[in-house]
């Protein structure tokens, strides 16, 4: 049976990328603990609007943990702390204690400037994908799907790599603001499959170059990214990216 809890939300307000931000607080009383954290924020916003104030702005969409839109840094952990790792929308109030103050911050990284409050601009991820996160195939060119045999283990591992939702938690958690886990997951997925092998070297170089160009930091293998990844991507992907990258460079 659900019980009710009361919490204080301490949330980041910031009007634009260049503006100075600050924290506001709001008390939420008697929230059923089977409410999701985002629903609690909905309730807070309803109360704020009721007081004639502007609501707290944050990104969210599918609320099923798959679209990767939600991006809140809660009590010092991207997406908040859960046992298995989950997105913000899959965080439930039962994870908090009655009377607790919950600090909500945006992803803080130079690569992700704040748009408003806790909504950040993650366009950089799209740009990295555009640099090479695809196989160059035109619609209608494909051969029969079963013409390429792929060992189950490879397909499964590629699937694990492809599970990345591009939320940016890895960058948010990294003390270096590095996007290596994101980039390596895509590179790994395609490097593991025969379809992606043809362009593997080119892809690794192009995506890494774009990542560097966009000002993301370097990987120092602290594993903070892997610890907070809601889709459990592992740094073995990063090793694979390094391998692909070094081989590509050596071949030049």
């Amino acid at each position: 049976m659900a019980k009710n809890i009361s919490v204080t939300i301490k949330f980041w307000k910031q009007n634009g990328p260049k503006e100075k931000g600050h924290f506001d607080t709001h008390e939420l009383k008697n929230i059923p603990d089977d409410t999701s954290f985002l629903e609690a924020l909905d309730i807070m916003n309803e109360e704020l609007i009721g007081e004639g104030k502007e609501p707290f702005v944050f990104d969210h969409d599918c609320r099923e943990g798959i679209c990767g839109m939600c991006s809140l840094y809660i009590n010092g952990t991207p997406h908040g702390k859960t046992e298995r790792g989950a997105t913000t929308c899959q965080l439930y109030m039962r994870k908090f204690k009655d009377g607790e103050t919950i600090t909500v911050e945006p992803w803080r990284s130079a690569g992700f400037p704040v748009i408003k409050d806790c909504m950040v601009d993650r366009n950089a991820f799209d740009k990295i994908m555009q640099a090479g996160g695809y196989t160059t195939i035109r619609t209608g060119q494909a051969q029969d799907a079963n013409a390429i045999l792929i060992p189950k283990e490879d397909a499964d591992e590629a699937m694990d790599c492809a599970s990345c939702i591009g939320c940016g938690a890895c960058v948010a958690a990294c003390k270096n603001g590095s996007a290596m886990l994101f980039v390596s997951s895509k590179v790994s997925q395609l490097a593991l499959l025969p379809q992606g092998k043809v362009e593997a070297a080119k892809r690794a170089k192009a995506m890494v170059a774009k990542m560097d160009e966009l000002g993301f930091g370097n990987c120092t293998n602290t594993r903070a990214c892997e610890a907070v990844c809601p889709k459990c991507e592992t740094i073995s992907n990063i090793a694979r990216l390094n391998r692909e990258f070094i081989c590509a460079k050596l071949a030049d």
Partner: peptide, 15 residues
């Protein structure tokens, strides 16, 4: 480089 990539804003709470 990494500090630059991190940005000038620090987290209030880190865990």
């Amino acid at each position: 480089q990494n500090r630059k990539a991190r940005g000038s804003n620090r987290y209030e709470v880190t865990d």
